[in-house]
Simulated scan of single mutants.
Amino acid sequence: MKTLFMLLLFCHVASTVKHSLKYVLTATSGVTNIPEFVGFGMVNEVQMGYCDSNSKNPEPKQDWMRDLLKDNPQHMEWYVQMCLSEQQFFSANLDDLKQRLNQTGGAHILQRMNGCEWDDETGEVIGFHQYGYDGEDFIVLDLQTLTWTAPRQQAFSTKLRWDADKASLEYEKHYFNHECPHWLKTYVHCGRSSLQRTDLPSVSLLQKTPSSPVSCHATGFYPDRAMMYWRKDGEEHHEDVDHGEILPNHDGSFQISVDLILSSVAPEDWRRYDCVFHLSGVEDDIVTKLDKAQIRTNWVSPSEFPAGVTGVVVGLLLLLALCIAGLFIWRRNNNGE
């Protein structure tokens, strides 16, 4: 499966049962207008820290994280050292990859995603550690066998070298089984007031023109563990439906839309359809009936324009036609001289 290699502002939240601590580190070569190294730290997909090669020092992104680092200066120092050492590690490995693959120019991206998930009901902990290069998975650590897997042939030599480093593998095992879940539980406890809140959205029916699909749009919900779908006669409906992605709002909440194409729906059947929004951890769904009177649109038919407005438009069109005709006559007369 392809790995997404883009610098994103991660603001999503995992479920109320499973929690995650994730670090996404990215080094670039030949990419302008961004630092050569960028690192994000996320708890339940909410960005809690950031560092890059320009600013040098890590920057907490949540109030609870600022408080935690203020009370634990040793932990802050750990992040400072990690930010510096990872910059050096990524820079050296990116240069090595470019030489090994005979890539003398162009834009190249090396990225790592590592961390752990913790189920607070079962206590299960799952670690993950993987690298990607230029938009594809490159090498992945199997924590069960403590061996590296190379999805790409170009990574096979790296796999052999890293498999032979038994001390590093033992450190990885200890980190993902003990240190990572310890800090994840600490972060979840410190940030519980914001990480585990739920906000319901406002839901609207939107339509550009009478022939456009009707969009059921929900905005302002939190966390992003949500789904929305159309129903027909109480059953989930998939035909002529287009599902949108969950997108972040500027205030940290989320929005989503799901469109229903009405070309095959008879007017008398509209009452059979409704839109359902479900937020994880919330018992009651938000159900919105497909009702023409509730659809919001900016479209106005020509027949609905006021007579005065119509007259002005017609007058302007006639004036434009006269101007164009006059221009052609002027050019013809000048060409004839």
Results as ranks from 00 to 15, higher is better:
15 S>F: 02
15 S>Y: 02
16 T>S: 13
16 T>L: 13
16 T>I: 08
16 T>N: 09
17 V>F: 14
17 V>S: 15
17 V>C: 11
17 V>Y: 12
18 K>V: 09
18 K>Q: 14
18 K>H: 11
18 K>I: 13
18 K>M: 08
18 K>F: 06
18 K>E: 15
18 K>N: 15
19 H>N: 13
20 S>K: 07
21 L>N: 02
21 L>P: 11
21 L>D: 02
22 K>G: 05
22 K>T: 14
22 K>V: 04
22 K>C: 12
22 K>H: 14
23 Y>V: 00
23 Y>I: 00
23 Y>M: 01
24 V>W: 01
24 V>G: 03
24 V>Q: 05
24 V>A: 03
25 L>Q: 12
25 L>A: 10
25 L>R: 12
26 T>V: 14
26 T>F: 02
26 T>S: 13
27 A>K: 05
27 A>Y: 02
27 A>F: 04
28 T>W: 03
28 T>Q: 10
28 T>L: 12
29 S>V: 05
29 S>G: 13
30 G>L: 02
30 G>V: 12
31 V>W: 10
31 V>T: 15
32 T>F: 11
33 N>H: 13
34 I>F: 13
34 I>W: 05
35 P>V: 07
36 E>S: 12
36 E>Y: 03
36 E>K: 07
36 E>G: 14
37 F>M: 09
38 V>R: 03
39 G>M: 04
39 G>Q: 03
39 G>K: 01
39 G>H: 09
39 G>E: 05
39 G>I: 01
40 F>W: 08
40 F>I: 05
40 F>Y: 13
41 G>L: 14
41 G>W: 08
42 M>Q: 08
42 M>V: 03
43 V>S: 10
43 V>A: 11
44 N>T: 02
44 N>C: 12
45 E>K: 11
45 E>D: 11
45 E>I: 05
45 E>F: 04
45 E>A: 14
46 V>F: 06
46 V>G: 09
46 V>W: 08
47 Q>T: 10
47 Q>Y: 00
